[in-house]
Amino acid sequence: MTYTLIFLAILMAAVVWWLVKQTINVKPWAADSAADAVRTDGVHGLGSYVPLPNIKLGLGVFLAVVTSLFALFVSAYTIRMEYADWRPLIEPNLLWVNTGILVLSSVFLQWAWNAAKRQDRAAVKRGIIGSGICTVAFIIGQLAAWNQLSAAGHFIQSNPANGFFYLITATHALHILGGLFALGKTISRLWQHSSEMPEILLGVELCAVYWHYLLAIWLILFALMLNT
């Protein structure tokens, strides 16, 4: 559980630090004079006018949940690894290719994000389509890796390392599929002429953050599986 606890400790430290900032030297029972209402609002709390869009914070919270989920998988993996019947998995080389494709899809999205900041609609389209294709390729690649493994006789029940491999890759791929749904929505918005650029920028940005994040998770998981 060490990995999960490290993650939680960092998160909790951040929460506590933020809370200290909010509460230090605040006397909650002191009422504002009416004229102070605006000022108080600005000093304490995020307030309702802080420009961070709800959806961004929502994504942030969701990513914390996802981190907790994968941290627990990693914890379970490392605990289970200690047992005598653990046999390291021979990872198919295809995974290297898939990793490359996933990196590429992240790069495409980053490119699209930059383009969206420049208000370059055409470039956004190119980037986002490129990313979509790479992502689909990644998922097909992962399925192919499964196929290779099972063709070689490594089924999910053969060994705990195999079990974790199938389970973790499937969970990761499901998260990416969920992301593709959001990406699809952004794409359809891109092709609607009525949609405004700021709205598109937000969509692209959210997708990019999510993709980078899942890439980082994949790199950690892949490194873990390679080294054990």
């Binding site: 809370l19 909010q22 509460t23 605040v26 909650p28 504002d32 209402a37 605006v38 108080t40 609002d41 000093v43 304490h44 709390g45 995020l46 307030g47 309702s48 006018y49 802080v50 961070l52 709800n54 914070l57 929502g58 919270v61 969701f62 949940v65």
Partner: peptide
């Protein structure tokens, strides 16, 4: 629950009315 929970968190953090600081 995760769907609901995201709502509760973001609502408390983002949708407080003016003057509603955390310590209130």
């Amino acid at each position: 629950f995760t769907m609901g929970g995201l709502n509760y968190i973001v609502t408390v953090l983002q949708a407080r009315t003016r003057g509603m600081s955390l310590m209130r």
